[in-house]
């Protein structure tokens, strides 16, 4: 088993990695699904499609948005199911008891997991140190973490939108980020909320979390500064191989990361570590 000491250090906020790439989807289905307005790169979906269609994994665990800010985790086995889960979710989608039961009972061998840094930490621990016989350690093949600056306390955030903007949770259709604003599309139009105001509705647990990129994952992915691109950080040889293979088989277009994008990721990762020190000292 590959050994990977994870050390959280503000001097080296991206942790241990083997490669950094700027990636963009080369898959028509993903492009069509995301639409022309989407600012991300769609690289994670493309990698998942490669994994499933080439039989590298039997299934992937992804989060799908149900309604508004609520979502559910699903075990996707077909490209259609994966495509349906594309795009940001804007809230954390918890792993539940049903997931463990499905994973242990289902006839799947290798599974790729997509989650947030906190979930990647849990999965890495399960894989490296199986504390329980009931752990599904052997099924975890690849852990993909998305960049995360924190998740919303859903109830509080929805209440804020309702009180301040008179949009009820049922009316929200989509939320996207545009510069310094959150754009909330609803049935009657759209509202723009400054990110500064929305920050008050972050979960407290996220304020003490030091992990921006997902230090425990095999592969970290997040929006690059350059519109239409995803920044990929590979942390193990396995992840590196998969990214290259996905590029060779025409799912992805890879390029060197630009300095600006790198600088911003490092800055944000360091900011999250420093923020966690500040808030953690108040709860010890």
């Amino acid at each position: 088993m590959a050994y990977q000491p994870v050390v959280i250090d503000p001097e080296n906020p991206l942790g241990y990695y083997t490669g950094i790439y700027l990636a963009q989807t080369a898959d028509e289905r993903v492009k069509r699904k995301l639409g022309p307005d989407y600012k991300g790169g769609g690289a994670v979906t493309s990698i998942l499609l490669y994994l499933v269609e080439h039989g590298v994994v039997d299934a992937v665990v992804v989060a799908r948005r149900k309604k508004g800010l609520y979502g559910e985790t699903i075990i996707a086995k077909t490209p259609e199911e994966i495509l349906e889960a594309t795009g940001p979710k804007w809230s954390i989608v918890p792993y539940t008891l049903g997931l463990r039961e499905k994973l242990t009972s289902m006839d799947v061998g290798r599974v790729a997991f997509v989650g947030l840094p906190c979930q990647a930490q849990f999965l890495r621990q399960v894989k490296m140190f199986p504390l329980m016989e009931s752990d599904f350690s052997k099924k975890i093949y690849l852990i993909i973490s998305l960049f995360c600056m924190g998740t919303f306390a859903v109830e509080s955030f929805l209440n804020y939108i309702k009180k301040s903007y008179h949009v009820s949770p049922d009316e929200i259709e989509n939320i996207s980020i545009n510069g310094d604003e959150l754009v909330v599309k609803h049935v009657r139009g759209e509202i723009r909320i400054p990110i500064r105001d929305a920050l008050f509705h972050l979960q407290h647990g996220c304020l003490t979390c030091p992990d921006y990129t997902g230090l425990f994952a095999d592969l970290s992915a997040g929006k690059a500064l350059k519109p239409g691109f995803t920044l990929l950080i590979t942390r193990t040889k396995l992840a590196d191989k998969i990214v290259r293979e996905a590029s060779n088989t025409g799912y992805l277009k890879l390029s060197e990361p630009d300095e600006e994008s790198l600088k911003i990721v490092i800055e944000k990762a360091r900011e999250k570590i420093m923020r966690s020190y500040k808030y953690l000292s108040t709860v010890l």
């Binding site: 008891l97 989650g115 407290h204």
Partner: peptide
């Protein structure tokens, strides 16, 4: 109030004492 709701504890519990 520090829980973010990731579900790690629920998936770990050997006796299903935790539920979401």
């Amino acid at each position: 109030g520090l829980c973010v709701g990731c579900g790690a504890c629920v998936l770990s519990c050997p006796t299903n004492a935790l539920q979401m």
